[in-house]
Write a protein that binds this DNA or RNA. Structure first.
Lengths: 341, 341
DNA sequence: GTGAAAGCGCTAACAA
DNA sequence: TTGTTAGCGCTTTCAC
């Protein structure tokens, strides 16, 4: 059904190798033969079988990316710019999602590994380093951790400066003369902890002691972040004195928090100022346009691609010991109504 | 570096075939041998090479999906449920994006074809049927068109009932006793036209003639839909008499339109009621929560998976002439503040 | 229950 | 400039 090199070779009356060379633009072929082969290939609708090619060359020109959530614009934007940059350099991106489920993440990674791709980028949702990750590196497939890193696991990494993010947000709230700044925390991983640390650091710089009651976690229950934000904010609203500002781990949480504030008959930002994280693209169209910390996802994607390319390059020409690369992308705050003076 | 069947075979002292059988759970192997092989495989961190397997079996257990935009929740939700359903049946989804560029779409499709996957789903952004699409079917790779179809091109298809969507939206606005209902159109394809037709049909049922001035297009310029919606709405607001309702081709356009309305000092829905299409998940958190037509993307994904599975099945046991399958998913309207009485 | 032989479609190295 | 040989890692068929 599908044409192969052999089909063309037989039709034209040359050897398979000759056809293969023509298809790959290998110089050493005569004008006439080349033209005949090319014509026949077009006629037969030939398309090289990449599986076969990768079997012999040992490389697939594909890089895999596993993210926890495809609905999250942060990861998608990274995927987009990563794919675009890779493509310019002859690589393709294979994108898959773990749906925030460590078991699924492992399956996806296993599958991508079985596909023998050239490198793997994972924004892991696992609570601790999966054993698999160690094996990957042992087997010689370059691995890059994205966004979430693991304590004590030496690995290429690219992500945001979460502490800086929390710091930026909280400092901004201080600059509005707010004193009772609350924080709705994220999950217990490098990201959630980082943002919380930034929050603490801002207090320290201010010479103030944060009120532990003002730091609340989101329930671990598997529910919409917006709902979690709403619940957390309700708890904060019941405190006396009430917080006059809140820094939220994420934008969806901030949206939920704002809902709770409005429901309680309070005003944003007059009564309570709100800052989120992520700078989602609809932030400015919300009921109250949301101030948010932008992570520069597009830049992260480009950086990841460059890191990958350099890894792939150095792999082609091994220079002894493999280096570990790390990149941290700085964040910036985008100010909107929810923290306007 | 990576273990192969051969490595295991040699280490254990059996033949490659035996190992292969064990790995695939083929019954005919003795307890003892099986255990030895399995142990060694684990020890060596064996992972089957899917490229090699697919080369001999002629199937990859991968289905490709090409969408125009990964940031659009509609496509992502479809991708999610499609992937989940396929996975339950032993297939994987390879997702890629054309970024609304027909040339890139073609490249992506070419690449996926070269990867020899078992079937292809494409939400095409091409203005007319790409020649390639005909070839695909000739070559025996099942093709399913998603969301956007082409006049006169016989092909499996799965999508929304766009005419019904426009009809639902417009009828809803009539039920609010609005008479001067405007429409901000989408692109000139099966979707944009369908929604417009539904709009016209609702007028017809009402025994009213739509005012052509109330139907405006979005500029073709490559710019954020939200900006397009804003511009289009500004034009509508300059008309006399001013429309008292507007049905927008998409939610981002509706968001832009709402911005324009608020900027003009008018109220939603009192002065102008607004309906969008797509029911994006942040619709209810907008400045004015947006009434929108939901397309049931999750259901569409599941349906697409089932269609694929059935196609793949029938391909395995060919029964003569290939059938063309078509599925249209009904829509429903979700009413929020932007059209509250 | 196990294995030998053949071949999937392609490329790398070398010969002619 | 062109072709021969060998083999990538795996599965299939069929013989033992």
């Amino acid at each position: 059904m599908r044409a192969t090199l052999k089909d063309i070779a037989e039709a034209v009356g040359v050897s398979i190798v000759t056809v293969s060379k023509v298809m790959r633009g290998h110089g050493d072929i005569g004008q006439e033969t080349r033209k005949k082969v090319l014509d026949k290939a077009k006629e037969l609708n030939f398309r090289p079988n990449l599986a076969a090619r990768s079997l012999v060359t040992g490389k697939s020109s594909i890089v895999g990316l596993v993210v926890p959530d495809l609905l999250h614009p942060y990861f998608v934007e990274i995927a987009k710019s990563l794919a675009a940059t890779l493509r310019k350099n002859g690589y393709y991106l294979m994108l898959s999602s773990s749906e925030e489920d460590p078991r699924m993440e492992e399956q996806e990674v296993e599958h991508l590994l079985a596909l023998r791709l050239d490198a793997l980028v994972v924004a892991s949702c696992a609570p601790t380093v999966p054993k698999l990750f160690g094996d990957i590196q042992d087997q010689g497939t370059p691995l890059v951790l994205l966004d979430r890193s693991f304590e004590g696991f030496r690995c290429n990494f690219i992500g945001s400066d979460n502490a800086q993010m929390g710091h930026l947000a909280t400092r901004h709230l201080f600059s509005l003369k707010r004193k009772r700044i609350a924080h709705i925390r994220g999950p217990e991983n490098s990201i959630g902890r980082g943002r919380f640390e930034g929050y603490l650091k801002a207090f320290e710089e201010e010479g103030l002691e944060p009120n532990p009651k003002y730091v609340v976690g989101t329930s671990t229950v598997d529910v919409d972040s917006t709902v979690q934000g709403r619940d957390a904010m309700k708890r904060l609203l019941s405190l006396k004195p009430r917080p006059d500002a809140v820094f939220c781990y994420s934008d969806p949480i901030a949206i939920g928090a704002m809902d709770a504030i409005v429901d309680a008959g309070l005003r944003i930002p007059e009564d309570i100022a709100v800052v989120g994280c992520g700078n989602l693209h609809y932030d400015e169209h919300l009921r109250v346009p949301l101030t948010s910390v932008d992570q520069g996802s597009t830049r992260i994607g480009v950086r990841a691609a460059k890191m990958l390319l350099s890894i792939l390059d150095s792999k082609a020409a091994p220079s002894g010991k493999p280096t570990i690369r790390r990149t941290i992308e700085p964040a910036e705050i985008v100010i909107r109504e929810s923290t306007r003076r």
